[in-house]
Design a protein around this nucleic acid. Sequence first.
DNA 1: CTGAAAGCGCTTACAG
DNA 2: CTGAAAGCGCTTACAG
Lengths: 342, 342
Amino acid sequence: MVGIEEVAALAGVSTATVSRALRGKDHVSAKAQAKVEDAARELGYVASSSAATLATGRTQNIGVVLPYIDRWFFSVILEAIETELIDHGYDLTLYNLSGGEKQRKKIFDELLLRKRVDGVLAIAVNPTEAELANLNRMHKPIVGIGGPVKGARSITMDDVAAGKLATEHLLSLGHTRIGMIGGLPNADEEFGQPGLRYYGYAEAMKEAGLTINENWVAECDFTIPGAYVVAKQLFTDLRNSPSAVFCASDEMAFGAIMAAKDLGLEVPKDLSVVGIDDHNLSEFYGLSTIAQKPAEQGRAAVKTLLDILALPNAEDHDNVEEKKEWPVKLVVRASTAKFAKR
Amino acid sequence: MVGIEEVAALAGVSTATVSRALRGKDHVSAKAQAKVEDAARELGYVASSSAATLATGRTQNIGVVLPYIDRWFFSVILEAIETELIDHGYDLTLYNLSGGEKQRKKIFDELLLRKRVDGVLAIAVNPTEAELANLNRMHKPIVGIGGPVKGARSITMDDVAAGKLATEHLLSLGHTRIGMIGGLPNADEEFGQPGLRYYGYAEAMKEAGLTINENWVAECDFTIPGAYVVAKQLFTDLRNSPSAVFCASDEMAFGAIMAAKDLGLEVPKDLSVVGIDDHNLSEFYGLSTIAQKPAEQGRAAVKTLLDILALPNAEDHDNVEEKKEWPVKLVVRASTAKFAKR
DNA sequence: CTGAAAGCGCTTACAG
DNA sequence: CTGAAAGCGCTTACAG
């Protein structure tokens, strides 16, 4: 395990000069620079990050907290964040909240605070007041994605607007018998996104002067199989069923499309389907959807966080509430079409 | 930022006693223990991990290296590993290799060696000799999953056996016109799994005295859309097409099933399909497949790695080649049936 | 069982 | 531009 002393000895300079040369912060004579670089290379020297952290107070490490990994939105965003952090010389420590309350407590009360990370990225995780207070006490900035974080910065799309935009697309095509698959307002997700998307749907329907048929609104667990089952229920009576369905996620839309197919309904001739996400399989399914570009959201969040960390004063690292709205776009493909009697 | 000194002062003991009480390693009198715990709680003290690492040489952190996150196998295994590590008091630092050669070099030559991790878990990543030599120099154990690691321990299923088992299942049902979708032997994946699975298929066919029809073997990128396209090609001439297809992954099997459906073929009446993985959607698709249980593989790898790290002598941390075969099981569902003329 | 003190390996203000 | 030295905040062998 070669240390800085050995490099200094081989290069014939002090450890201070080695440190300066290798970090490239202070000026070092070209000659010393070269000697140090040669020595470091020859010995295969890599600085110990714990020693550097202890001396500087910076870990060059970001904690990422999320509730799932094995879901499209999360895995895409995680991959983008990781690449972006590495590019900026940061490591990523992963904290998955799937382990329940006890694990969450451990993560927020111990791990994140063990001076292990310089900042936190919270993906669809809403810290409690106490959790945030702890972070503030340590001057650890946190940036949220996938939902607004109370008392801190976040980047998130407007779920109500997304639901409304999707529904209005169906309305614009002449549909009036519009169902919805997704979460109802009381769903206990971290931010109630499912509910928010429902509100957008309800708002659009109301503005169009239409009433919602409650038999055509189905709660669902955001999975393909779940939506498949639920979608079939919407069509128990083909003489009285929706001509269009808004699904609160693309995966549910895939399930709905498959269910329709298996019932002998043609999409979009007999049924229009629109989702939210722009999943990487949406093009394959020809799904019209609301794109939310998670990879770009992730990169933007990394930039926000690193910009804060670049500020020299610790007070500037304090968390302040600041919502940045992420733009949302309708992508029209083959799963939606003008209403036609079937 | 409260440190150990403040806790010691409040508890009226030395920092040595605080450390001992909080780590629970050496014996401490019940009275001192209580005083320290109270003081630590009152101050919200959490030890600095960089200081602890510097003093002990242990980071309590494991580096996980993988080529993708946004793929079923990888996200499932990652989630399982993370939970298991947290349970054992370890953090997980994520290194995704999707950033190309330069990023890989940075990861293996700098990040992993910055004394940041105690050990490495490599998922479907095969370190080069030089990369492994670096790890060995630092006495960092590495355990591989999803492919054998040359010169180190690994847990991996036998891809040839899996391909053979899947093909034999089709043979046992009376099929002789068996196609395959997946990688050909020359595919440049890290370990050539695609090729290995093909060899299993070829071996089974040969042992059954059958020759392979090259028009029925299609290379594919392991995605659903890719397999959909390729599967349709297998059925350009329905009078002369396979009655069964072995797909080297479940996602490709899903694509094949959809393609068959869209062509008006019934699965399994007109076409039997078998995959490899036991993807979480396989039950939904009724897919017969070879289960490889990535979450369990991940947990087993964590156990192997932590067991090594628990050995007190640094030499015991050295890497030795040791392949542990992961058992594989055929799961029969609704996508395979006895051969029948169509 | 407990404390004083050395030491882990860096970084950086200070002095030159 | 460079070096000697203090200091970051823990842990642990040593002595008592």
